[in-house]
């Protein structure tokens, strides 16, 4: 199978993920978007791994672990936001910040 098709096919997934990171307001929704974009990256790495060598799969595993760690930290930050500031809405926080000025 032609790997270029596989590479192009995952791009909509990456688009949705990056769009979600940039546009969404709920902090947990941003982390979900990260997971979506990460899936596109992993699919790309998997495709390249099957083209070249097993090393790609090592690379993919390490990327999965790093982004899982990042998600864990992000969710901790979300809980802290909810507890201390009673909101996980990014725009609302911005609004509150401007009010305090």
């Amino acid at each position: 199978m032609n790997a270029l098709i596989a590479l192009i096919a995952v791009l909509p997934l990456f688009l949705i993920g990056v769009y979600g990171i940039l546009a969404r307001r709920h902090f947990i929704r941003i982390i979900i978007s990260v997971e979506i974009a990460m899936s596109a990256v992993i699919l790309t790495i998997g495709t390249f791994a099957t083209v070249t060598s097993s090393f790609g799969e090592v690379l993919g595993v390490l990327v999965i672990i790093i982004i899982a760690l990042e998600a864990a930290l992000g969710l901790a930050i979300a809980i802290e936001m909810d507890r201390t500031y009673k909101s996980v809405d990014i725009l609302e926080i911005r609004k509150l910040k401007e009010e305090t000025q």
């Binding site: 990456f14 993920g17 990056v18 990171i21 902090f27 941003i30 990260v34 974009a37 990460m38 596109a40 990256v41 790309t44 790495i45 495709t47 390249f48 083209v51 070249t52 090393f55 790609g56 690379l59 990327v63 790093i66 982004i67 990042e70 930290l73 992000g74 930050i77 936001m81 201390t84 500031y85 990014i90 926080i93 911005r94 910040k97």
Partner: peptide, 27 residues
């Protein structure tokens, strides 16, 4: 809080872009 959120969101974007670039160069 805004500092944290901005830092985190941009950091995550940087991670994703780096991972993608890494994948392409590896390919």
């Amino acid at each position: 809080l805004e500092a944290t959120v901005k830092f985190f969101v941009f950091g995550v974007l940087a991670t994703l872009l780096f991972a993608y670039g890494l994948a392409v160069i590896y390919g």
